[in-house]
């Protein structure tokens, strides 16, 4: 149940958050304590219980008609961009292959 430093690294990689190696032990210990607490859930008998997921009623279907609404002005779309070029968001080079 305890989160090893290796697992902290794995989770931090998935979450794309750099964690300094000196902090891996501390974070692992903190998360382990929290996860240890979560083990109490194992005591609950949930056979034949469906996960709840969310709390929506069925008062409407939550869908929209296929109508084009005006988009943002491009300047607005790019207004908060840290860096842009040629009316697009600029990012540094991508190492390795594509994902997805």
């Amino acid at each position: 149940m305890a989160l090893s430093e290796q697992m902290v690294r794995h989770v931090a990689t998935l979450a794309r958050i750099r964690v300094d190696s000196k902090d891996e032990g501390r974070i692992g210990a903190e998360l382990s304590r929290v996860l240890e607490y979560m083990t109490m859930l194992e005591r609950v008998d949930t056979t034949a219980v469906d996960p709840m997921w969310q709390s929506v009623d069925a008062t409407w279907d939550g869908q929209r008609d296929d109508e084009v609404q005006s988009s943002l002005e491009r300047a607005q779309a790019l207004a908060n961009a840290p860096e842009q070029r040629d009316e697009m968001f600029l990012i540094p080079r991508i190492l390795g292959g594509e994902e997805g």
Partner: peptide
């Protein structure tokens, strides 16, 4: 509601 259209200027069909 952004237009689903091919070939528009970059980032013009965005919201």
């Amino acid at each position: 509601g952004c237009a689903n259209a091919f070939g528009a200027g970059p980032n013009t069909n965005t919201c």
